[in-house]
Design a protein around this nucleic acid. Structure first.
Ligand SMILES: [Mn+2]
Ligand SMILES: [Mn+2]
Ligand SMILES: [Zn+2]
Ligand SMILES: [Zn+2]
Lengths: 162, 162
DNA sequence: TTCCTAAATAAGAATAAATACTATTTAAGA
DNA sequence: TCTTAAATAGTATTTATTCTTATTTAGGAA
């Protein structure tokens, strides 16, 4: 869903406010990187973001793009798509099923639901292309991670895990 | 969902059959790599698979693991988890929404559905951990990709795209 | 069974995404 | 304006994945 110019401006205002609340500096780079992600209905990768912002901020470094994106993720101001971890994971279960994914350690478990298998796809989606399959992704904290998670509630973007 | 020993054996038999039908050789490495993915309820990455199979096939190379996994993906005998592309993609839309993803070019579009926002999570899933959010992933072919896709219906694992 | 050959593999080099390091710059509060 | 911790640029490094090439092998033919 695209955001109109006004909506973008509103979002930028909110963004600055949230930065202040989080006690992090509202740098030019941060604002522009967020703007780049927020302004498009697409879901750009780091390099696309880098290229887009670089036009406006020629001194920008790729390192800053990554650092900024991960910190915005930690602050809950953006999300990542698909897998939490960057490595590709494989699945030999070809029967219709769904996944529970731990946001902290990446643990992924299958589950089954007739109801989820037969969700009715909105007409607006069918207009985007040919639908082949539908899967539900439930995200949260697995039991062992939620145990560790007392006090230090830091679900930063994952490095290691099962 | 774990597979009992018998179930695994049945799956291995089916697997060999499918290899034969596809006209590709049933090498020791292929069988063991598939077995490794099929036998666990986990969703291992290439390195995990390599380590597991390496115990049984000490000459195995990591390259073979990747090559085999991608070809099994192309044959439709396994799937990958999460994003089709390996690069991480970012999303500044923090409102509750869902995604349509083109399996060929990776194009990803938001869509909205009250129904999908309020899916009731099965009890079995709640037993796995604390549920934080639920998202529906609709996969298929976007309009422009489905146009190209006449005749050569080869949705092999993606390299480039928008 | 033995032979043949295209297909598959091992090993290691190469590439590309992501991260770490360090000297320099800057936001924002005093 | 001054100060300083936080953030950045630029570069080096790491790590996941892919490529290259010489060697091996599955499986069909003889
Ligand atoms: Mn699965
Ligand atoms: Mn989205
Ligand atoms: Zn976990
Ligand atoms: Zn497409």
């Amino acid at each position: 869903m695209e955001f109109e110019p006004e909506a973008l401006q509103t979002r930028m205002k909110h963004f600055k406010e949230q930065l202040r609340r989080a006690g992090v500096k509202a740098t030019h780079q941060r604002l522009e990187i967020f703007r780049e992600v927020a302004k498009s209905g697409d879901h750009p990768d780091a390099e696309g973001i880098y290229k887009g912002v670089h036009k406006r901020v020629p001194t920008l470094s790729l390192d800053t793009v990554y650092r900024t994106l991960w910190s915005l993720l930690d602050l809950g101001l953006i999300t990542t798509l698909g897998a939490t971890r960057r490595r590709v994971r494989f699945d030999a279960n070809m029967s219709s099923h769904h996944h529970f994914i731990c946001a902290k350690c990446g643990m992924t478990r299958d589950f089954y639901s007739k109801k989820f298998d037969t969700l009715e796809i909105p007409a607006a989606v069918k207009a985007l292309g040919i639908v082949e399959k539908t899967q539900v992704e439930v995200r949260g904290l697995c039991i062992s991670c939620s145990k560790e998670d007392n006090s230090k509630s830091n679900v930063s973007h994952i490095k290691e895990g099962k």
